[in-house]
Design a protein around this nucleic acid. Structure first.
Ligand SMILES: [Mn+2]
Ligand SMILES: [Mn+2]
Ligand SMILES: [Zn+2]
Ligand SMILES: [Zn+2]
Lengths: 148, 148
DNA sequence: TTCTAATTAAGAACTATTATTATTTAGGGG
DNA sequence: CCCCTAAATAATAATAGTTCTTAATTAGAA
């Protein structure tokens, strides 16, 4: 899985470094988005010398190349996952999970209207925050005392 | 215009301070979104003692109260404007202008699909970046040498 | 094997924002 | 009008997340 990505890097003239291999391995083995610091922590288990700057630098490069995608909410660190096509997320404020949704607002109708404004679209962000089913359930059955 | 807003603040138990008056005056006199630092710079002309912390603190409070709205892209400082109903923007990467669009993706169709996921929506962000008509024109007729 | 441009580790620097704290002030009650 | 006090402020330190700088290392071409 990440072998192919490493080859894509090489095809574009980038070196196959152990740091890049580990970065891709960690991302592809995760079942959720990871922040740069989380990636570093996981790599440190095997390569304690890994530097955060290296991870940020490579994440940026890979996002640019569309090998990795970045989920940047308006608070906390950005989080990354292996690129698997354009999509958006429902981000849970309770558990932090980012549920993939197939719907993109920049299709058909809305896209057409935007282009009628004479605006040339370059990129877009669409993020929905709220609570996932599990966190709604937990809130209902929660017997803990309120935080005040 | 900002007199009404000041009254709304007072109605919610907040004091009518000269700093708050100036903040609202500056925002309502601007024809575009302003960053906190830009607000400070404009207030400084008349009140050189104004503090950035005061502006940030009040902007946050006013956003929370829906008296001001915040436009937070993923780079550079957040920018603010007087709240005039829920809307989204086409943000020009050339001149920075934020064109208001009336279309909200979280209506009807898409909203329904999201709620069918069992997700309880709390908030959402939709921003489109690209180039406005004016900046597209300028790029065409631009006789400057490219920056390499 | 040698060479060199690419890459790295380490940590300083930076940007935007929030927290802390001593001082000031808005506005209500006497 | 003056006093009082909670609210608000100015100044500045602290923070978070990320990028920059630089000297040392290394991948991979020759
Ligand atoms: Mn995803
Ligand atoms: Mn607007
Ligand atoms: Zn999309
Ligand atoms: Zn909307």
């Amino acid at each position: 899985m990440c072998l192919e990505i490493i080859e894509k890097l090489a095809a574009r003239g980038l070196k196959k470094t152990p740091q890049r291999r580990m970065l891709l391995k960690v991302l592809s083995q995760s079942d959720r988005h990871l922040s740069a610091e989380e990636v570093v922590a996981r790599i440190k288990v095997q390569q304690p010398g890994i530097s955060v700057a290296t991870i940020y630098r490579n994440l940026n490069k890979m996002v640019e190349m569309e090998l990795v995608s970045k989920l940047d909410l308006h608070d906390g660190p950005a989080r990354y996952e292996i690129y698997k096509g354009h999509h958006h997320h429902l981000v849970c404020l309770g558990c932090g999970v980012a549920l993939k949704i197939g719907i993109c607002p920049l299709q058909g109708h809305i896209k057409k209207i935007i282009e009628e404004y004479g605006f040339r679209v370059n990129d877009h962000h669409f993020e929905v925050t709220g609570h996932c089913q599990k966190c709604q359930q937990e809130a209902k059955t929660d017997t803990r005392l309120p935080a005040i």
